[in-house]
C-alpha cells in the first residue's frame, strides 16, 4: 500500500453534493476485481461504486456537511481573492488591449473572489471537508521536523537532520520501536549518502 491508506472524501460532483448519504456498496470483495472494475452501468447510482469498495478496511460513511468549516474556508478564499485583487491593482491594472504587469493577476483574483462568494453560498450543503481531530497534532510535529531539517541543513549538512527526522517519524509519528527507529534512521541516511553524494555527486551540504 502506498504511504498509508487514505480515507476517501466523498467527491460527488459539486452540484449533487449533500444529498442522502451514500449507502455502503455490496460487501467488499476480497482483493480487487481482476480485469479492471466490474462493468459499470452507464451512470452508476450514487454510492454503489464497485471500484471504490474494492478498498478493504475503510469506513465508507461519507462526511456530513460542516457549515461552519465550509463558511470559514469560503471566507478565506474570498479574502485571499480580495487581497490579491488589491495587490494586482497596485502593479498596474492596464487595459485589455494593453495589459500591464497586474492585468492578468487582477483577472484571476477577481474570479477567485467571485468563486469564494459562490462557496459561501453553498456552505451549508457541501460535504467534502473533514474535521480536525486529536491526531492533527501529528501534522504539526511532522511539519516541525521538516522545518528543523531546513534550519539545520545549511550548518551541519543533511546527514544529522535527516537521521533526526527519520527517527522522529518512525518512533513518535509511526509508533515503531526504539531500536527499529534508531537502526532504520541510520540505514536510511547511509543509503541517501551512498546514492546522492556518492553516486550522483549532488552538491548538497554534507558533513562527512
Amino acid at each position: 500500500m502506498g504511504p498509508g491508506p487514505a480515507k476517501r472524501t466523498a467527491p460527488e460532483a459539486g452540484e449533487a453534493s449533500g444529498g442522502a448519504p451514500a449507502p455502503d456498496g455490496p460487501g467488499a470483495p476480497d482483493g480487487p476485481e481482476g480485469p479492471g472494475p466490474a462493468a459499470a452501468p452507464p451512470g452508476p447510482p450514487a454510492g454503489a461504486d464497485p471500484v471504490q469498495d474494492a478498498e478493504p478496511g475503510f469506513e465508507e460513511a461519507p462526511e456530513p456537511p460542516r457549515p461552519r468549516t465550509n463558511t470559514a474556508v469560503a471566507l478565506v478564499v474570498t479574502a485571499f481573492g480580495a487581497v490579491g485583487c488589491l495587490g494586482s491593482w497596485s502593479l498596474g491594472p492596464g487595459t485589455p488591449a494593453e495589459p500591464a504587469a497586474g492585468t492578468w493577476p487582477l483577472v484571476v483574483c477577481a474570479v477567485i473572489t467571485v468563486l469564494g462568494c459562490v462557496l459561501l453560498g453553498t456552505a451549508r450543503r457541501t460535504a467534502d471537508t473533514e474535521a480536525f481531530s486529536a491526531a492533527s497534532w501529528k501534522i504539526l510535529a511532522g511539519i516541525g521536523t521538516m522545518a528543523g531539517f531546513i534550519a539545520l541543513i545549511g550548518t551541519i549538512g543533511f546527514e544529522i537532520p535527516s537521521a533526526l527526522l527519520a527517527f522522529v517519524w518512525l518512533r513518535f509519528l509511526g509508533g515503531e520501536s526504539w531500536r527499529l527507529s534508531a537502526v532504520a534512521s541510520v540505514l536510511i541516511v547511509a543509503a541517501f549518502y551512498a546514492v546522492f553524494v556518492g553516486l550522483l555527486s549532488v552538491p548538497i551540504p554534507h558533513l562527512f
Binding site: T155, I156, G157, P161, L164, L207
Partner: peptide
Amino acid sequence: TAVGLSLSAAACGGNLS
C-alpha cells in the same frame, strides 16, 4: 540529547562539502 547534539554540531560551525 538529540537537540543538544545538533546544537553543538551547529555551534562548531559545521565543516561542509
